[in-house]
Amino acid sequence: MKLSTKGRYAVTALADIALQGGDRLVTLSEISQRQDVSLAYLEQLFVRLRKAGLVDSVRGPGGGYRLGKPASELRIIDVMAAVDETVSAVRCESAVEPGCGGSRAKCLTHNLWEQLSSHVHVFLSQTSIADVIEDRLAPCPAAPTLWPLVEDVELTA
Rank of each mutant, 00 (worst) to 15 (best):
V150S: 09
W147K: 04
A81E: 07
A143D: 11
T156A: 14
I129R: 02
K2I: 10
G21P: 01
P61I: 00
D131F: 09
G68L: 04
Y9R: 12
L108F: 13
A15K: 10
T12M: 09
S118D: 14
D78V: 00
T12F: 06
A142D: 15
P139N: 11
G60E: 04
A13N: 06
A71K: 06
D135S: 09
L112K: 07
V122W: 05
L49Y: 00
V120N: 02
K2L: 02
C107L: 05
D36Y: 05
T109Q: 08
L124V: 01
A15V: 03
A130Y: 15
Q20V: 10
A142V: 14
P141H: 10
E30P: 04
N111F: 07
K69D: 03
V55C: 01
A95L: 14
T145N: 15
V26I: 13
Q44H: 11
G63D: 10
V26G: 03
D36E: 15
I77C: 04
W113Y: 11
G21H: 07
C92T: 10
P70S: 03
V90F: 07
R8M: 08
I76T: 01
G64W: 01
L108E: 13
C107T: 02
A89N: 04
S4D: 12
S128A: 00
M80D: 03
R75P: 05
C100F: 11
P139M: 08
S4V: 05
P61H: 00
L19K: 15
G64H: 02
S4N: 15
W147T: 10
I31P: 13
G53V: 01
G21Y: 01
G7A: 03
V58M: 02
L19V: 10
Y65H: 08
L137G: 07
L112H: 06
Y9W: 07
L14F: 05
A13S: 14
A15Y: 08
F123M: 05
W147D: 07
A52I: 01
L137A: 09
L19D: 10
D23T: 13
L116A: 02
R104P: 12
L74S: 00
R75F: 02
G99F: 04
K2F: 11
A13G: 07
E151W: 06
D135R: 14
V58R: 07
V87Y: 09
D84G: 02
L25S: 08
A15P: 02
A157W: 15
D23S: 11
P148S: 11
Q33Y: 08
R136I: 05
E134N: 12
P98D: 09
T156K: 12
A10T: 10
L155E: 12
P98H: 14
G63E: 08
A71T: 03
A71E: 08
Y9N: 14
P139C: 10
C140G: 09
D16I: 02
E93F: 13
L39M: 08
K6T: 03
I77V: 05
V26F: 04
K6P: 04
L45T: 07
